[in-house]
Amino acid sequence: MDFAELVRGFPELTTTGLVQGAIYALIALGYTLVYGVLRLINFAHSEVFMIGTFGAIWTWAAFGLDSNSGAPSVGRSLLLIALAIVAAALLSGSVALLIEVTAYRPLRRRNAPPLAFLITAIGASYALMELMGTLTQRRQIGSPALLPADTLFSIGGWSVTPVQMLTLSVAIIMMVGLDWFVNRTRFGKGIRAVAQDANTAALMGVNKSRVIALVFVLGGLMAGVAAVFSDMKSGNTRYNIGFLLGLKAFSAAVLGGIGNLRGAAIGGIMLGLVENYGSALFGSQWRDLIAFVVLIVLLMFRPTGLLGESLGRARA
């Protein structure tokens, strides 16, 4: 164990951990939203994210930028990032909706047992992964450099790059926005009603199918935003990027209490941080192991996760 490494690298480990955690959190929200309403673990959500990472890179490619082009000006970079966020969010949201309408909705119509949904989810996940694998010849695709890699500001030994700053601010805006939407708007109330009691929600005039579709789209939008920042953080993407990231984000959702929105946000951030501190302590080859060990240990003591289950059951 290398405590010196942890202490020395603490500020940087915290920043990069928060950034990775924000990406986990945004993806985790999609798992938790769908679970909250349908009690279904949408394993295809990892591919919704994966397709978003390509959506962003294709958007940049449409403006003539690839991994070899030099960084454009800051203003132009911000504009390109904003465009990529919109494009990736729309693409991921549409893919999520497509999965719901073509894969899950027919099963619900026939009152299929839960196992059928689970198998369908895994099938949809592989289908999308292989589709993208074929389209991209299973190559790693680079993402252009957009914002300068130098330090934006530093306090003491704590330095933050523009990409990190942007990731964290946008992630916070998205999460606060989603929280507001679910807790304060009429549609959000419909989501919470279906999550708490679907039959009674129908008796209030809530269209369950529409709520379910909305939940898939919301999860997809969040995953699309995460995808853009994942591209900028790692500098590339691949058809199978969703597998591990999706698994981690799902763990984050479980860590926070699946079905609980704020739980997913906190679980994601925590997982990002713990992973980073742990890999400094034990060596980075242990990174993934640490994440899952933390999950298992926490679930032993708090089986329903940090904040407990259910969408809006407790308002907090």
Partner: peptide, 22 residues
């Protein structure tokens, strides 16, 4: 409904507002 179907995580006021959802 049978069993009342109160939304447990919503306040009384929110439950009533759900009735006016449409």
């Amino acid at each position: 409904p049978e069993g009342r179907g109160v939304f447990p995580g919503m306040t009384v006021l929110e439950n009533l507002e759900m009735g006016a959802y449409t």
